[in-house]
Amino acid sequence: MAFSMDSSRVTRFFDDLRIPDLIVRHRGATLAALGLAVVAPFAIRDYQTFLSYGPGGLPHNVVGWLIANVMRLVAREQTSTLPYSDKSLYLSSRPGFLPPDFPPHRSSPRPQFGAHPVPQRQVTQLPDPETREKLIARFQALGEAAQAKGLVDIKQSLYERRHAALFVSSTRAWHPVAQRSRGEIAHVHAGLDGSIHVTLHPGDCKKVIEAAWGQRHGLAGVGSRKIPGSLPVNYVLVYAPRDEAELDIVLAVVRASVAFMAGLEGPLE
């Protein structure tokens, strides 16, 4: 009996509210509430995915997540080599710095990436911690050797803001691609994935992408070449190496990046 009485009171309460009338009078608020109820679970999962990449160039919080989602609206496809057919690209009429028939075609399918263009992070086919540490050590040794030759400076990445990067030495002339990238040549993502961002000769970009060793950054080539710091189309991510043989290949790509960006006539010795 008590239950029947409580139920009737609840029924009268909602009748008194005149829910249909309220919905009609506050249609905008109602739609917004319904939209939020539908979108909220997806937004929470998307935010958790963003955090799972680890710290990068954007703030590792809600602000960074919102910026990353705005960037999704302008991000481009990443595996076509058509952009490198543009004859106006710097040094496009000259051979690149990678050897002929190099790199060999990668044996695995391309790894999967997070949905956000920034930070660009590989989420499958990750290296073990030992391989990642070897990569970081060899990348650092390569950079120090190039620095000793007056080719590069080593400092914090302008794009990642958390990793050391190689830059064209301030003592050298900077060609147009170096100017657009603010001198940044390459950096390793020293977190979980161990992938590498490099800036390459157009012909070498094509080789790396065609051999399934990497893909362009989603924002590479977006915006005007006159905008300082915008990413050149030459800005490519090289997939994380998983063993010694793959380490040798990706470091050869880094050497080609240094040679191109430092304005060398031939390969980095």
Rank of each mutant, 00 (worst) to 15 (best):
G214C: 05
V38T: 10
A165T: 00
S195K: 06
R76E: 14
G266W: 07
D6W: 14
D16L: 15
W65C: 13
H201G: 03
F3C: 11
V198C: 03
H187Y: 14
A190L: 00
Y53M: 07
L126D: 12
I44L: 13
K206V: 07
L135M: 10
Y47D: 05
P55S: 11
K149Q: 11
A178Y: 03
Q48C: 13
R45F: 14
H105N: 08
V168W: 02
G35T: 14
P41D: 15
A37M: 15
L126W: 13
E184G: 01
D21C: 08
F113K: 03
L98Y: 04
I19P: 05
P83D: 11
G114S: 10
A146M: 13
Y84P: 08
M71I: 08
D16E: 15
P117G: 02
P127M: 09
L22I: 14
A33W: 14
V258Q: 05
S88A: 10
S52Y: 04
R94S: 07
A245K: 14
Q78A: 12
C205E: 02
D15L: 11
P41M: 10
T171C: 04
A29C: 05
T199W: 00
G214F: 01
V70E: 11
P127C: 06
G56F: 04
L166Q: 05
K155L: 00
A245T: 10
L264Y: 02
A148C: 09
S170D: 13
N234R: 03
L51V: 13
D101I: 07
F167Q: 05
S7K: 08
Y239D: 02
L66Q: 14
A68C: 12
P129N: 11
T124E: 11
F50T: 07
F260V: 03
R18W: 00
Y90M: 03
V177Y: 01
G54H: 12
A33E: 08
L126H: 11
L66V: 15
